[in-house]
Amino acid sequence: MDDLAQLTEANQQFRGYGLVRSARLAQTKKGDPFYNLTIARGKTEIPVKVWSDHIHGREDEVKQMLQEGKVIFLEGDTSTYQDQLQMTARAFRAAEEDEYDIAEFLETPPEPIEALQEELEGYLQQITDPLLAEIVTSIYAKYKKPFSTYPAATNNHHSFVGGLLYHTVCMLRLGMDVSTRYPAVNKDFIIGGITLHDASKVMEYTSHIAPAYSVPGEFIGHISMSSMLVDREVQRILAGRGENAKLTKLEQEAVYQLQHCILSHHGRMEWGSPVEPKTLEAHIIHLIDMIDSRVNMAERGLDGAPEGEFTKVFPLGKLYKPMSGDD
């Protein structure tokens, strides 16, 4: 097989190219070094083991080769471990630049990036509060390019190029629908909170091709950093108003509510939120985030799975893929 998508069962042989999505050096119980890799092409990913006999004597070369974001030429054999397909490497080398097109290895959203950008910017124009509109629009404008290319997660959901933008737009669609059905919902906080809830993932991750956690991502995390972005915009706006300028009481409350929507969107403290939802809009954003992430997990996990059977989809557990009825 020369395409990772063709690998479906144990005892298959692979000889082809793959993108190193993750690479972790580990040790066996005997102290021998080995690598845990995740090799990808488009939507397809497979764990790969590189044992010590392929590392010994070429440690520096292998370390340079097996880096996240690099494309390698790989030969290996498939097997199963705990009901999950994996591969053991027999040989590998760095791919030459003229041997591949990086775009062929990157998964992208099911909708064009430009259309998603246009849709999001249309929602931003619907924010009626002038201060909130300026804060949210300014942050989006500053980070538009990485916001449109970075993933929404390193794995599990929307972990592909443009995943952050796609996840945000999908949430905005749900949020606007909920706002239309329930007049008590403040659309400004729905639009602003959703747009900014994951905005700092462009700083939490190291790249859009093979994202790992950055230093500020590890130390602070995207939730707190996104709230910090709001505060920085407020300080910029106040500086433009003149010396000793302050927000009005209503403006300050609006800023607090926007930051609260960001800070509470994971729902519970044990899930990473510094605070739990205390406004209607914060509860809605948390629930919509849960819905959209789980739908994406299920869709990607069942893509290519056999119909009429249960398939393990991490972290959702076993999911059933209905039969299509084409027979």
Score class of each variant (00 low, 15 high):
Phe310Ala: 08
Ala94Asn: 06
Trp271Met: 10
Gly242Cys: 04
Ile72Ser: 07
Trp271His: 15
His266Lys: 12
Cys261Gln: 01
Val295His: 09
Asn186Met: 05
Ala210Gln: 00
Ile102Ser: 09
Ile46Ala: 02
Glu118Cys: 00
Asp303Ala: 13
Asp327Lys: 10
Ser79Met: 05
His167Gly: 03
Ser224Ile: 15
Lys43Pro: 01
Ser159Met: 06
Ser264Gln: 03
Tyr320Glu: 04
Ile55Gly: 08
Glu299Gly: 08
Leu316Phe: 06
Glu121Tyr: 05
Arg90Phe: 02
Cys170Asp: 11
Asp326Cys: 08
Asn296Cys: 10
Asn155His: 08
Leu116Asn: 10
Gly308Trp: 03
Tyr213Met: 15
Asp98Gln: 09
Pro216Asn: 07
Ala94Leu: 08
Met297Phe: 00
His266Gly: 10
Pro112Ala: 01
Gly317Pro: 02
Leu4Met: 05
His56Asp: 12
Gly267Glu: 12
Gln64Lys: 11
Tyr205Trp: 07
Glu253His: 07
His157Tyr: 01
Ile291Glu: 09
Ser179Tyr: 04
Phe314Pro: 00
Asp60Arg: 11
Ala239Pro: 00
Gly193Arg: 04
Leu258Val: 10
Thr78Gly: 05
Thr44Asn: 08
His54Gly: 07
Pro216Gly: 02
Thr279Phe: 02
Gly57His: 00
Glu104Asn: 15
Thr180Gln: 14
Met1Ala: 06
Glu9Trp: 01
Glu59Cys: 07
Gly301Trp: 02
Ala89Phe: 06
Leu74Gln: 03
Gly317Val: 05
Ala141Gly: 00
Leu280His: 07
Val169Met: 02
Leu124Glu: 12
Glu61Phe: 13
Met203Trp: 13
Pro306Asn: 03
Pro110His: 12
Thr248Trp: 03
Glu204Ile: 05
Gly122Pro: 06
His197Met: 06
Leu116Thr: 06
Val185His: 03
Thr195Ser: 06
Pro216Ile: 12
Asp188His: 00
Val161Thr: 12
Tyr143Val: 09
Lys142Arg: 11
Trp271Ala: 11
Glu204Gln: 08
Leu106Arg: 10
Gln235Lys: 11
Lys63Tyr: 13
Tyr256Val: 14
Asn244His: 15
Met228His: 15
Gly69Val: 01
Thr137Lys: 10
Cys261Lys: 05
Gln13Asp: 08
Asp289His: 00
Met171Ile: 03
Ile209Ala: 05
Met269Lys: 15
Thr137Ser: 13
Leu287Phe: 14
Leu19Asn: 01
Ile72Val: 15
Gly304Thr: 11
Glu118Val: 04
Ala26Thr: 12
Ile223Met: 06
Glu121Ala: 03
Lys246Cys: 13
Gly162Tyr: 03
Ser148His: 01
Leu238Pro: 13
Gly217Glu: 07
Ile127Gly: 02
Tyr205Ile: 09
Gln12Gly: 01
Val185Thr: 05
Tyr205Gln: 02
Glu270Asp: 10
Gln117Ala: 02
Gln12Lys: 03
Met269Ile: 14
